[in-house]
Design a binder for these strands. Structure first.
Lengths: 149, 149
DNA sequence: TTCAATTAATTGTACTTTGCAAGTATTAGG
DNA sequence: CCTAATACTTGCAAAGTACAATTAATTGAA
């Protein structure tokens, strides 16, 4: 129980695999990165491209091309911000919303299944723990930041 | 507290970023995947290539090339298995061991820093929780498996 | 007001990563 | 033996990545 890194390494590997294998909806294959993008666009209110790219820690040039791909797949809208014409705000198309919702549901189903192997009390504890962990990591400035020095 | 996926999405993103930014030792840059490989080779006893590739869920062809890169960087040894000449077993060179140990230390330092924002009781709880979670995911057959249907 | 500095986003280019298909070599099983 | 299965490698093409440079718009200080 002493080596934190071991615990986290294995946990994050499992979720990486989960992300990898959870993203074929209808005809289209969604890569993990694209899934993350859809997720964040759904969560944030009319985000700009920079905003999402920073959140996800991707280079803006790579991000720009990912956005182009998602627009071509008809999952995303890019609209010029009237108050600052350098900025484009992102939003989900109805199809994009559907895909995002479906992925969300799939992920939750998978997680529910995994959680079913724990007692209710443990389930509670685990969720509370991850919540605490996320808060702690948000406070940290050396570790786990969207943008690192 | 209801949406599991949200909690996990954010947590895993942070650790993804941590992995991304934690791997420059001495002269050489280690990619997250390579760091995972070194970690697993260190952990398992004289593993074969297939073994590690399966553990990490990477295609064996991609994996083969990653191994070549790590050998070129002098971090890994690939020795033929005398009992089955199709098989190669992997082991760390002294340099590889050093790199693996250093990454481990860095990761633990980062995690310790994040944990320092929690009470000792919470730290305990979080570690216990992740442990439970890993066990639950290992039991699951739909979710989070090294190899998925 | 004006113009240099900053910011948001895109494009050119080059490099890396990835995985399928195909191939080699070895072992296992009928 | 000889077919099937396994471990690993290489060819190739597609996708992802990021640095450098560019465009366009905004900010701010002289």
């Amino acid at each position: 129980m002493d080596n934190k890194r071991e615990l986290f390494q294995i946990m994050t590997r499992r979720f990486g695999l989960l992300n990898k294998n959870c993203c074929t909806i209808g005809g289209c294959d969604i890569s993990p990165i694209q899934s993350h993008i859809l997720y964040e666009v759904d969560r944030q209110h009319k985000p700009s491209m920079q905003q999402i790219a920073n959140t996800l820690g991707t280079d803006i040039t790579t991000f720009s091309r990912q956005i182009q791909a998602l627009i071509k797949m008809n999952l995303l809208n890019k609209t010029p911000d009237p108050s600052d014409r350098r900025v484009y705000t992102l939003s989900l198309t109805p199809e994009g919303k559907y895909v995002a919702t479906t992925i969300d549901k799939q992920m939750n189903d998978y997680l529910d299944e995994a959680f079913s192997y724990m007692s209710l009390a443990d389930q509670e504890m685990v969720l509370r723990s991850i919540h605490l962990l996320n808060e702690a990591m948000a406070k940290s400035d050396k570790c786990c930041r969207p943008i690192m020095g």
